[in-house]
Nucleic acid binder design. Structure first.
Lengths: 239, 239
DNA sequence: CCTCTCTACAGGTCTATACCAGTTCACCGA
DNA sequence: TCGGTGAACTGGTATAGACCTGTAGAGAGG
């Protein structure tokens, strides 16, 4: 049950209990959870404490309340932070696919004029270029080239790039602020068609992204080519 | 001051007072607001009531709290709601172009199976279909077909569709909640190529959107074909 | 001069209680 | 049979007080 002596707030302990009950399915969707007074009695805490736990779960979207009726388990899975800096992996998992990645190349380069503008560095200055194939359920979905300015990553190694790059960036104490990306249609070129296992000239999505830190520094420039037959961008808009 | 007899909750009255003080600039940015105990004394209400008012303003992002220090006015958010339901017109104006629209067709139809699913109506039920060309600086950018379920718009006329459709929807008392859209690459078909003044088989973006009301009703289904050579989707992501 | 400690004050958590307002439904009377 | 009334629920609002932890500054001690 709950531990009143614990430094963990009681309302938070109750939150966790309810959360796990919802996730385990012990409280079915659309089902009413016990009333606030009942929960207060069961947990032997004040009703206000229960209300705080419930109100947090409501703002997370796990529950919703109806005055005079009760508090219910929410069905919706929709209110994900869709347009957050979602990584490909999260995106794929959300779609129910197993994400994968295949390394194609990693090398030191002089940054081209066009890329240097996006990365706010001098043309020809030192950078790293990582080429990857994104997989979903073993099938190639996208071909991605990531360019990083060397001055921000003095000691980068291929090993650091095996897991989440964003996580690596933040582990170095850099605070990611956001990203700006463009999406346009294009036709697969020979090199891309080969890597993605599609026909030359097949429709693809060309995505370009610049990500930046809270400090204002631009830390990655990514161009991705997505297979048009296997991948759609989905965006949710509110209000 | 506040009216304890009013049916308007006290915490809400206090919220409004604080909100207006912030907006008028009586409480400067980064400035500490009076402590909870002080406000409770000033308004002659309980501290918990003050906490409820403040906590609402915190979740709106107007204030932020620091334990042991106090509660402060948040700096104004400069980040516009980028992924909001931006209309094509706003989008174009933002890009510095003059938006225009050319009507192609407006007719009553029986809604097809595929569209009926998105609009949550029976196959073959009555609907309206509006076809338009979107222009930027007189140049065709997109071909758009909007399908509306007739049951939501009993008295619609072509005239209502000349200006902002979303504005029309809201003028009828319907509250727009949001939209969900997908973006994929495709190749221009003959009909589209002709209307957009491009080659058959040229790369285009295919966008499909379903918009819905707060009531849950889906009120429009739009498919748009954007010229790949003239239009890119731009998205900003935060955090 | 620096550092430690004490203290006043900030928000955080929690209790126990009260009454209000919306919902539902059994029951009773016309 | 129909309709109203009220009891018994639901969550919503509000009080007053208790004790917690974190912050910062004043003042004591080295």
């Amino acid at each position: 049950m709950i531990n009143k002596q614990s430094p963990i707030p009681i309302y938070y302990q109750i939150e966790e209990i309810l959360r796990s009950q919802i996730e385990k399915g012990e409280l079915a969707e659309e089902e009413m959870i016990p009333s606030e007074r009942e929960l207060a009695y069961d947990f032997n805490v004040s009703r206000m404490t229960i209300r705080q736990a419930i109100s947090n779960l409501v703002s997370e979207g796990l529950l919703y309340k109806e005055k005079g009726k009760g508090t219910f388990v929410n069905i919706k899975r929709f209110e994900q932070p869709l347009m957050d800096l979602t990584s490909f992996s999260e995106d794929m998992l959300w779609r129910g696919l197993t994400p994968g990645v295949k390394l194609i190349d990693f090398k030191e380069v002089g940054i081209s004029l066009q890329k240097s503008r996006h990365l706010q560095v001098e043309e020809g200055s030192k950078g790293y270029e990582l080429s990857r194939i994104r997989l979903a359920d073993e099938e190639p979905i996208a071909y991605e080239v990531m360019t990083l300015p060397a001055y921000l990553f003095p000691e980068i190694e291929l090993n650091n790039l095996k897991s989440s790059f964003y996580q690596y960036v933040e582990s170095k104490g850099m605070k990611i602020e956001g990203a700006s990306q463009t999406i346009e249609p294009s036709l697969a070129r020979e090199h891309e068609a080969e890597l993605l296992n599609i026909e030359v000239g097949a429709p693809v999505l060309l995505m370009k992204r610049v990500s930046y830190l809270a400090s204002g520094h631009h830390f990655e420039y990514v161009t991705s080519v997505y297979r048009g037959d296997k991948y759609k961008f989905v965006t949710q808009m509110k209000r």
